[in-house]
Simulated assay, not measured.
Amino acid sequence: MNMRLTTICIATALLAACATQPKPLQGQFETLTAHQAAANNMTGSMVRWGGRIIRTEPRPDRTCFEVISTRLTSDGRPYWASDDTWGRFIACRTGFYDPALFEPNREVTFTGRIEGYEERKVDGFIYKFPRVSADVVYLWPKRERVNVITRPSPWPWAWGW
């Protein structure tokens, strides 16, 4: 019985280690969405938000990113299970981030503090964006698409396996 319990504990610890967030994304953050932050005054809240880049805007002293937000996986990567989004936000960070690398539809996660709000038009609609002063800009590697083709086994005895 003790050996079985020990094996289960070790397996659980190994699986938990695989699901940890990259070090820059770790920490304590408010559990609110960009949509909730826009509906309420949440200025000063520490957040970890992510999504897909809509636009990258280099400015003289910083770069701002307009992002469509979604929930994050346990490792902090944006998760796209459906078309349901968590709103939009703007994240700004000191320095130059190249729009050729930080291009539309790239997945990115930010950590930082909500410093205010900005109104912009989205297809003629006035939209209130929470603006995050980002401490971390984490660009995720592109996901590779793989086509998997399955064929029946040429060995009839293997079909039931």
Score class of each variant (00 low, 15 high):
3 M>W: 02
3 M>G: 09
4 R>G: 12
6 T>I: 14
7 T>A: 15
7 T>R: 15
9 C>P: 10
10 I>T: 12
12 T>Q: 13
12 T>R: 15
14 L>G: 15
15 L>E: 07
17 A>S: 12
17 A>G: 12
18 C>T: 11
21 Q>A: 09
22 P>W: 08
27 G>T: 07
32 L>Q: 03
33 T>Q: 02
34 A>H: 08
34 A>M: 03
35 H>D: 07
36 Q>A: 08
37 A>C: 03
37 A>R: 09
40 N>H: 05
41 N>Y: 04
41 N>E: 02
47 V>G: 00
48 R>V: 04
50 G>I: 04
52 R>P: 05
53 I>S: 04
54 I>S: 03
54 I>M: 05
56 T>E: 01
59 R>N: 07
59 R>P: 07
60 P>R: 03
63 T>R: 04
64 C>E: 14
64 C>P: 15
66 E>H: 13
66 E>R: 11
66 E>W: 14
70 T>M: 07
71 R>V: 06
83 D>E: 14
85 T>L: 12
87 G>M: 06
89 F>D: 05
91 A>V: 05
95 G>W: 03
98 D>I: 12
99 P>Q: 14
102 F>K: 04
105 N>M: 13
107 E>G: 01
108 V>P: 15
109 T>P: 14
110 F>I: 14
116 G>K: 00
116 G>H: 11
116 G>A: 06
118 E>H: 13
120 R>L: 06
120 R>T: 02
134 A>I: 09
135 D>P: 02
137 V>G: 12
138 Y>F: 15
141 P>Q: 10
143 R>I: 05
144 E>V: 08
144 E>D: 07
145 R>L: 06
146 V>W: 03
147 N>L: 09
149 I>A: 04
151 R>C: 11
154 P>Y: 09
155 W>M: 06
159 W>L: 09
159 W>D: 10
160 G>E: 00
161 W>Q: 02
161 W>Y: 01
